[in-house]
Design a protein around this nucleic acid. Structure first.
Lengths: 225, 225, 225, 225
DNA sequence: TATGAATGAGCGTTCATTCAT
DNA sequence: CATGAATGAACGCTCATTCAT
């Protein structure tokens, strides 16, 4: 049929093309919200097209299918996260401060972007079916890992950090603490009987994680306490 | 008179009661599998009744609604996890070994029970709507936290562990590493380009987590490496 | 789910069962009309359930799918045709009259049951996909063929008919003339510029076919004319 | 000014006209295949434009509507059949051989062009709605009928064939046997339990039809057998 | 001459749930 | 204690067609 512009991104500059890009963008933004809130299954194409003030039909016109739309949402999400990660990359010459900065960023980003977590969870529920279709899937977390690698190397050079650490492990450790606390905010709240979102609670967790990660990477952690 | 048996637990011992309990149990087991695999929204009552070799109608008879069934599934799941946690509680008199044991258990349990994770994620997606209906919700994680508290106290008493630690924080730290690695197994695999389920990978993560947690809790961690 | 009574036929005798049978019957009758008029593809489940004064959902409850419904329609249709065929089976002791009777019946039946033809055409368009699912598919035309076989045998015995004829061929010959004339009534009308449904036209065709078939089967056909 | 080229046939000779004719031709060929395979209702404009490697929009540009396209397909089909019929018209001076030749051609043509049959069936399902729009509808089958008329006249002149026959009736008889056998190939196969497409089966039917038609038209058919 | 964008109704099917015994 | 029957809304998706350049 040679007709579907599926996966088209920025192209022409005419008025019609601009309007089309806007429609596509509206759908993508709406889909991100809806999928994040209701999951992949709970997020119906109807909810999305309504929120985008468009029509069901246009989702298929631009993205081919609900799955195609979800893949596009994931792609967009990862791209944006990587862009942010690059922007905030701290100066590795001061390793301790840099690592603290990375941890703070990660904790805040996950806590303030529950959409991102919800979509990841939905994707893992479906066993990575959509994420495997991403073309540049290997590149996405690389930015964050390399960021940490630079900091660790600088710290090791200065004799502050251990030399036997893999950046990948430290990345996973930090991501774990950020992800778990944010993703399970509701069930943890119920079981611990706390409000994890209170300023005090957030600051307490941040301090504990920073202190713990530093104890893990330092050559000479504080003796006692 | 609509004497609904909703929330029936173990009761009578007659033949008919036994048959009823079996039907109820079949539905509960089927629902656990289906909800874990497809999420709350994706798990239809039809799939459940079909897997339980029962009828849609019976779900409403025993559990009132799909939500009621989900709550029952959560309740059952937590109860079973706590029972397991009690069984495997290690001897706190050897704090290092005990903590290692706790970490290993947690990592293995989460990795081997993706159902549990999937249900928790689904529940957090719905902002804890169902979990808030659990009667004994406050008790469930208490077992695990107290377990760790005893170990930390014993370690502190023996001069091995720091005295300024909260068991709740250590519990969250351990749970974070176990949860994150298991829950995101598919997306991490895609982005890191690794098979996280390979024996080697699992053992590597386990060793790293054990080493890291011990560095966090110890008064005198290994100097350099 | 153990819930769908798909393909249930006559069973209980209670009031509820009777009502259920009526619903099923209404759907089946409506489906026959709608499929015949619009074909398999053009016949929507909505049109059918509306005509049956029931709901879309009930089609799936009783027949599982649109395809299942179509198969049930075909089955019902063949069953009814066979029953009719048995009823009108003529006395083979007068072979000429019997054969004439069979031809007349076939011509009239096909002409007066365009539904039957439309469904067969639809089925052939789909390459017999549904008919292959009929359990007793081999039995249906057997009645008609055996009917002719008896007549041919009687005629041969009386020295009136050829002895080298196969009942299957004669059946196909008769069916061809009946089917073609009825099934193509609209296109033939357009191309021949005639009204094939006029009494005169029908009688002319009937006379021609009877005369022709008798010329085929007779040992001594009329010399000249 | 919307100078719609609907119903354009061969015209200009420029490069652009040639490209346009090619697009039109591609669509027409694709439509023939798709309509034949899926019927009028099942054949979507999307399938057609896709197969033609063109766009939905072009169908409306060249043919005005789906119905207009179907009419064009029918017209093309009849025109081609008539052209073929003229090409193969046998020498009437040998009436028996000529009639045999006509019968063989008809049987083969119908068997080898299921598209033609499928489109006719689809058209009859719709009560000749499209065929009535053909401008030269009266002319199409005239060729075939006149062909037979010439043969019958020659045969009658030579004293071989009956003189009371109408060419139209003989045409219908022959067409009946060719059409029925080919059009119902799938349902007949199911009910008779035979493979009607086997060489043996095709030759048997051909021999039977030739023999039968000759018995119908001859003044002195073979006495007994 | 040709095309990308948009439309609203309809498709077959499944949803969670209630009714009537 | 258990079930067959029924319901209306929603599901993801495709339909033939028109708009605006």
């Amino acid at each position: 049929m040679v007709r579907s512009p599926v996966k088209n991104t920025v192209r022409g500059t005419g008025v019609r093309e601009a309007a089309a890009q806007e429609t596509r963008g509206n759908i993508l933004r709406a889909a991100t919200k809806v999928f994040a809130r209701y999951g992949y299954d709970g997020g119906s194409v109807d909810k999305i097209s309504s929120l985008a003030k468009s029509h069901d039909r246009m989702i298929y016109y631009y993205f081919g299918s609900k799955e195609g739309l979800f893949v596009a949402v994931l792609e967009d999400l990862y791209r944006r996260m990587d862009e942010t990660e690059i922007k905030v990359a701290p100066d590795p010459s001061k390793p301790v401060e840099a690592l603290e900065s990375v941890i703070r960023f990660k904790l805040h980003y996950y806590w303030n972007n529950p959409d991102f977590l919800a979509l990841l969870n939905s994707e893992n529920l479906h066993r990575g079916r959509h994420v495997s279709k991403l073309e540049r899937k290997g590149e996405y977390s690389a930015v964050a890992v390399q960021n940490i690698a630079r900091i660790l190397a600088s710290g090791a050079e200065q004799g502050l950090f251990r030399t036997d650490l893999s950046a990948r492990d430290v990345f996973l450790l930090i991501a774990s603490t950020a992800y778990f606390y944010a993703s399970n905010r509701y069930t943890l709240a119920a079981f611990l009987g706390e409000d994890l979102g209170a300023d005090e609670a957030l600051q307490h967790w941040e301090a504990f994680v920073i202190d713990s990660v530093l104890r893990v990477v330092r050559t000479n952690p504080p003796a006692a306490s």
